[in-house]
């Protein structure tokens, strides 16, 4: 598989180099999250949505900074533009689509400063992806993030059953579970080479 092909970019971000399991990005929400499948699905959708926005912003910022020769301002611009864009989108959603806002809204401000989002923008510029490739990367990363979030939520619903030791409700077990998942995802290492 060509490493520039959209399928590879998508799969790479989703499975082989999963943001959560191999790069530890955006762990805070899933450690803090109480086990609930519905919340996880919504959260995953929101993250994917914000990632797409961030990807578009990153492409625009990169173009602008390259034009102005101000590449060293990239980080500051990313942070501000992404936070601003997410807030704009939130206001827009509130006005135009209250239903969607009800589903995703509460997580939006929280996610705007999530490390996975900024990392997406940074990796995208590091790999010099085009606009379309960036979108594939964002969708893949979002899908992978949601996948892990949903799996962990499902497992936590089981782990929170009465009878499980106190450890079962702590962050430590979440981490161990993530570690085992990360071991399992190693099965996909080397796909596409």
């Amino acid at each position: 598989m060509n490493s520039d092909s959209l399928t590879f970019i998508f799969l790479n971000a989703c499975i082989m180099n999963n943001f959560v399991l191999s790069m530890f990005l955006g762990i805070c929400p899933f450690i803090g999250m109480q086990g609930n499948l519905k919340t996880a699905v919504r959260m995953g959708m929101t993250v994917t949505f914000v990632m797409v926005i961030a990807s578009i912003c990153a492409t625009a910022v990169n173009l602008l900074l390259a034009y102005l020769h101000l590449e060293y301002l990239r980080l500051i611009c990313f942070v501000c533009v992404i936070a601003g864009a997410v807030q704009l989108v939130e206001m827009l959603l509130k006005k135009k689509s209250p239903a969607l806002h009800g589903a995703l809204g509460i997580y939006l401000p929280l996610i705007a400063t999530n490390s996975a989002i900024l990392a997406l923008a940074l990796f995208q510029s590091l790999n010099q992806y085009s606009f379309i490739q960036g979108l594939a990367y964002a969708l893949g990363a979002g899908a992978g993030f949601s996948l892990v979030l949903v799996i962990i939520a499902g497992l936590r619903e089981r782990l929170a059953l009465p009878g499980a030791p106190d450890v079962g409700r702590s962050a430590a077990l979440s981490l161990i579970v993530a570690g085992i998942l990360s071991l399992a995802f190693m099965g996909f290492a080397g796909v596409g080479y």
């Binding site: 399991l21 450890v167 430590a172 077990l173 161990i176 570690g179 990360s182």
Partner: peptide
């Protein structure tokens, strides 16, 4: 080798948290 890989990071941090608690 696993300790230098991502799963090792999860296991070591989980282990430290358990030990501290």
């Amino acid at each position: 080798a696993v300790m230098a890989l991502p799963p090792g990071g999860f296991f070591v941090l989980g282990g430290w948290l358990l030990a501290i608690s």
